[in-house]
Simulated assay, not measured.
Amino acid sequence: MSQSTATVPLVEFLAQSNIESSPAWELIDGRVVQKPMPTLFHSRLQRNLVNTINNRADGFEAIQELRCIIPPYSPVPDIAVIAEERLSDEDEPFNGAPDWLIEIRSPDQGTLDLQNKILHCLSNGTQLAWLIDCQRQQIWVWEGENLPIIYSGADVLPDLGLGLELTVDRILAMTRQKS
C-alpha cells in the first residue's frame, strides 16, 4: 500500500492485509497515511508514559498503537487511554474514540495532520487529547470542545481527574528514562 491523495472508503481500507505492518497505516480524512517510524526517544516516551498511566490510573488502560474505528477514520494513536469497561474481550481494533488520546509528534511530522486526527476524535467522544512536541518542549492539550492550551515546564497537565500530577518536564524526561 502506498500513501495516496485519492480518498478510500473505511470498509475498503480495513480490508487491506498490510495495514498493521510496522509502522501502522491510518485512514485520516479519506487518505491512507503511514505513521512515521518512531525514534528511540519517541519509543521510550511512549513506553514510559503507558507504564506510568497503567500503574496509577485505576479503571483505565493505556495502550500503545491501538487501531480505533471512528468512521470514516481509522486512527492509530500513539497512546489510547480507555475506560476498562469500554474494552472488548475480543482481540480486535477498538470501536470508538478513546477517552484520552496522546500523540507524540515526530520531527518530520506536521502538526496539522495530528490536530486533524485529534479534532476528529474529540468530536466523536474523546474527552482529553495531548499532542506532545518534544522539539518545542511543550504539550498542546484539548479538553472537550475547548480550544487547546499549550503547557510547558513545570505546568501540571490535565489527566481526566486521575491525579497523575504529570508535568511537561517530567514527561520530556521520560524520553531519556531507560526503564
Rank of each mutant, 00 (worst) to 15 (best):
L49F: 10
Q138I: 13
R136I: 11
H120P: 07
G144S: 11
A154F: 09
V168D: 04
N54A: 00
R86H: 13
W142A: 12
T126Q: 05
R86Y: 11
M1C: 10
L128H: 13
S179A: 14
E12D: 15
W140T: 08
R170Y: 07
S21G: 00
R105N: 02
D113Y: 12
I53D: 01
L166S: 03
V8L: 15
L40C: 12
Q64V: 03
E92H: 01
D89T: 15
V50Q: 02
M37L: 08
A57C: 06
R44E: 08
I79P: 03
E143C: 14
K117L: 13
E85Q: 07
Q138L: 14
P148Q: 06
S152H: 09
S123P: 01
L131Y: 05
L14R: 05
D91T: 04
D159V: 05
G125I: 12
R67D: 01
S17I: 03
T167R: 04
G59P: 02
M1R: 12
L101P: 00
A97W: 06
P75M: 11
V33S: 11
G163V: 11
L45Q: 10
F41P: 00
V11Y: 00
F13R: 09
I63Q: 05
S21K: 01
V8Y: 08
Y151V: 00
H42P: 12
C134A: 06
P107L: 08
L87M: 07
W25S: 15
V11F: 01
E61G: 08
S74C: 10
E143D: 11
D155I: 00
Q138F: 06
V33M: 14
E92Y: 01
L162E: 04
D91K: 09
P93A: 00
V76T: 14
A97Y: 06
R67Q: 05
E165G: 05
P107R: 11
Q138N: 14
A15Q: 15
L45C: 11
T7A: 10
G59W: 03
Q109W: 09
L40R: 15
P77L: 10
Q177I: 04
